[in-house]
Design a protein around this nucleic acid. Structure first.
Lengths: 143, 143
DNA sequence: ATAAAGCTTAACCTTAACTCTAAGTCAAGC
DNA sequence: GCTTGACTTAGAGTTAAGGTTAAGCTTTAT
């Protein structure tokens, strides 16, 4: 009947400490306890946790996740607000991914440039001073 | 003869504070100064800064950028090491982007699900209690 | 019956990446 | 010649998201 905090911790890759922390902060709704106070996580809790991790893994802050879950707890009237939150978040993440891609291309160029430069450097005798007539072998040309 | 810290700050979207901070931390090689100690950034400095931002924007830590720039400063012998760093970084970023994409899809699903749910909720009279015969209108089904 | 796992509170520590403050110097405009 | 505003430094403070430690007690598994 339910999972212990340790089982959930193993399954979710979050420490027990973090699970309690999330619950205290109101990300996860209060988990049912045994008479002795021990947490027993239900399947529903696990799904909820997955969703929290999903939001977290797309870069949403704890604060915002908390706000989202508060809306959730407030009932179906808040569906449009939650939907708006998610749409805004999605746009943000998409923009971020485009940026990331753009910058990653620069990194790729640089890798190619470096590869070529090292070949030239070795061909030039591997000395710190470029052979006369060589194209700029200096360090600087960034990108 | 060079750009002031303010000009660079405007151009780069980094505050003057951050520019000094980067220089102090060794990301940016020491910038030339006027006799009175005022920084004058060269075009080369700007290119260097662009590259730093590129690394930063792909999620490289200040510490790693610092290590990278130290290798750069150490001369062409370090080209292979820098190249390795960049390759490793690229792989990491690519993996991260895949993850991001995966999680973003979940968010998209949720948005669609919410949209449908709200329509059903309104059709059901907008009451907190679902009309009999309706499919689960409760909050829980996460994803 | 003993060890391993759980619970709580409460306070303190950490890391990254800034951000701000204080106290002071310097240069340009009116 | 004074004010304004940009610049300097060193160093303290901030925020987010946890991590660590300790004390002390309870349960559960073997």
């Amino acid at each position: 009947m339910g999972y212990t905090i340790k089982q959930v911790s193993e399954r979710s890759n979050l420490t027990a400490h973090v699970l309690r922390y999330y619950e205290k902060e109101g990300l996860l709704p209060p988990v049912r306890r045994s008479s002795s106070g021990i947490r027993h996580y239900t399947e529903e809790d696990l799904e909820c946790l997955d969703w929290i991790c999903c939001l977290k893994n797309t870069g949403m802050s704890i604060k915002q996740i908390k706000a989202f879950m508060a809306l959730h707890a407030a009932g179906p009237n808040t569906l449009p607000q939650r939907c708006d939150m998610l749409r805004a978040h999605k746009l943000q993440v998409e923009a971020q991914m485009l940026e990331l891609q753009r910058h990653l291309e620069k990194v790729s160029h640089k890798i190619e440039y470096f590869t070529g430069q090292y070949a030239a450097y070795l061909a030039g005798g591997g000395s710190a001073r470029p052979a006369a007539g060589d194209a700029q072998l200096a360090e600087s040309p960034i990108i």
